[in-house]
């Protein structure tokens, strides 16, 4: 089933591209953060797709399975273990960013990046 893998790789590329577009060009900060979470999801999907084996079985050794049959048919479990960590990291990063946004909203009353993050550069101009 090469088609499945191709579709999944295309999906992960699409997620990364959509996320990058949102993170760079969209003005609203919440949407920027949503875009960043899409980049992370795309990367995770790509790494899971590496471990996938077409027509294989879940990499859990059940009692009664033949070990050599299992070794040649199971999916590769190392990428799955990595993705578990990466998902949790992504969620915690998202939480910290949203917390910073909530603090900054109280000061500026807007979610626009141009207004919210512009003042640091203004400060620099003033200094020069």
């Amino acid at each position: 089933m090469a088609q499945t893998q191709l579709a999944i790789l295309l999906t992960s590329v699409a997620l990364v591209v959509i996320g990058l577009y949102a993170a760079i060009f969209v003005d609203n900060i919440i949407k920027k953060i949503i875009g960043i979470s899409f980049i992370e999801e795309g990367a995770n999907l790509f790494i899971v797709a590496i471990g996938y084996k077409a027509g294989g079985v879940v990499p859990i050794l059940m009692p009664g399975m033949d070990t050599s049959w299992f070794a040649s048919n199971a999916a590769y479990p190392l990428p799955f273990g990595l993705v578990l960590t990466s998902i949790v990291i992504g969620a915690s990063t998202l939480a910290v960013m949203l917390a910073l946004v909530m603090v900054l909203y109280r000061r500026y009353g807007t979610l626009s990046t141009k207004v919210m993050l512009a003042d640091t550069s203004k400060q620099e101009e003033y200094n020069e």
């Binding site: 953060i33 990367a43 993050l117 003042d119």
Partner: peptide
């Protein structure tokens, strides 16, 4: 706070990209 948020947004673009690179090596 503004500087921290800016750094964090750049960082959360940079680190999934690095993760993708690690994924390529793993593949």
């Amino acid at each position: 706070y503004e500087m921290a948020l800016k750094y964090m947004i750049l960082g959360s673009i940079g680190s999934p990209i690095m993760l993708l690179g690690i994924g390529f090596l793993l593949a």
